[in-house]
């Protein structure tokens, strides 16, 4: 297993389409002025603390950014609110686009935003029918609980009306709505959902996690991209927001304490092969974090009586890790055209 070198881990990549494997998928962020596009990008991908985003100035030009030192290998492109993203130069970008995000300031009147959004989605759909459309109903931290859902409901129906007027009803099947705020974990949750749709191996990963949970008596497990705290997969049981938040916070604790006491002087990440964390709660639950690859961690939660047999879980974890490596190796071989015969082995252990 140690033969698995760094170079290869870097190639844990995924693309939208085999033919376009050279190019990273693009996630496009749009929305009216001051809707929070830049803040979202900085909080999720650059670890900016939410209160610092107050100082962010209005973005004046199209901002392109590649997500680095992360499992998530895509480009983000942000269009300033005052600029329409559609012209001759951007057509190619929309062809490569995996997800188009439209961010709406829920604390403001969103009539205009909704109109613009319907128009953008329709135009993008004409260029590329595979784009996933994601609506972030943003800044909901300032709204009372019931009006969050009302807003969601209203936007959904207005969008449906507008698009069916243009005869584009089927776009609605690929539009998802998310209630988000940078002040809690909802923005990471929403981005997790967006990213998961771009991962082709998702069903296999979910299946692997299910098998791991069953054989180890684990209640819930997440596959996390450590840097962004986005979960790229979880098992098939429903996600409870509180559990997800706690797992996110556990990553923070692990990374922050490791940065203080376990950073090497050579500037490499404090998240290394031996990275491990275990938190016991009064409610007889244990949270466990294990490093899977340079960028990925498995975080799971289980009853403490089921964590007495650490050896069993350790064993299952190692098999799980091998499984994950195989999934991505198969992928890599497919990409590089090397014939392979072992894809059927993935998930065959039990």
């Amino acid at each position: 297993m140690s033969s698995y070198g760094d170079d290869e881990i870097d190639d844990y990549a995924y693309g939208l389409d085999e033919a376009e494997r050279a190019a990273r998928p693009i996630v496009i962020l749009t929305g009216l002025k001051r809707s929070g596009k830049t803040s979202i990008r900085k909080v999720v991908f650059q670890k900016m603390s939410p209160n610092e985003t107050l100082f962010e100035e209005s973005t004046a030009r199209v901002t392109q950014d590649t997500v680095r030192s992360s499992f998530i290998n895509f480009e983000t492109v942000e269009f300033p609110g005052q600029l329409s993203p559609f012209d001759a130069n951007t057509e190619d970008m929309f062809r490569r686009c995996g997800a188009l995000l439209f961010i709406i300031d829920a604390q403001d009147d969103y009539t205009e935003a909704q109109k613009t959004m319907a128009q953008y989605f329709a135009q993008a759909y004409q260029i590329n029918q595979n784009i996933k459309f994601e609506v972030f109903i943003h800044k909901v931290d300032g709204l009372p609980e019931e009006s969050k859902l009302d807003t969601n409901f209203e936007l959904f129906h207005k969008m449906k009306e507008d698009l069916s007027e243009q005869g584009l009803d089927k776009i609605m099947n690929t539009v998802s709505f998310h209630l988000t705020s940078i002040y809690d974990h909802s923005i990471f949750e929403a981005f997790s959902k967006v990213v998961q749709k771009l991962i082709k191996q998702l069903p296999t990963l979910e299946r692997l996690l299910d098998i791991f949970n069953q054989s180890s008596n684990v209640e819930k497990s997440f596959l996390f991209d450590v840097v962004s705290k986005i979960y790229i997969a979880t098992d098939s049981s429903p996600v409870e927001m509180a559990t997800y938040e706690l797992c996110c916070d556990m990553i923070d604790v692990t990374i922050d304490i490791s940065a203080i006491y376990g950073s090497k002087n050579d500037g490499t990440s404090a998240f290394d092969e031996k990275s491990y964390a275990e938190i016991r709660l009064q409610t007889e639950q244990v949270l466990v974090l294990r490093q899977l690859s340079k960028h990925l961690a498995l975080v799971c939660i289980l009853r403490s009586e089921n964590y007495e047999k650490k050896g069993l879980i350790e064993h299952n974890f190692n098999i799980f890790k091998m499984g994950i490596e195989k999934v991505f190796r198969v992928r890599k071989q497919m990409n590089s055209g090397i014939p392979h015969s072992n894809s059927s082995q993935v998930g065959s252990y039990q």
């Binding site: 006491y261 950073s263 031996k274 990275s275 275990e278 016991r280 409610t283």
Partner: peptide
């Protein structure tokens, strides 16, 4: 405490500590 719980013990390790 948001989960209605409290931690009793935390362990964090890596290669160095």
């Amino acid at each position: 405490s948001k989960m209605g719980s409290q931690f009793e013990q935390v362990q964090v390790k890596n290669d160095q500590f």
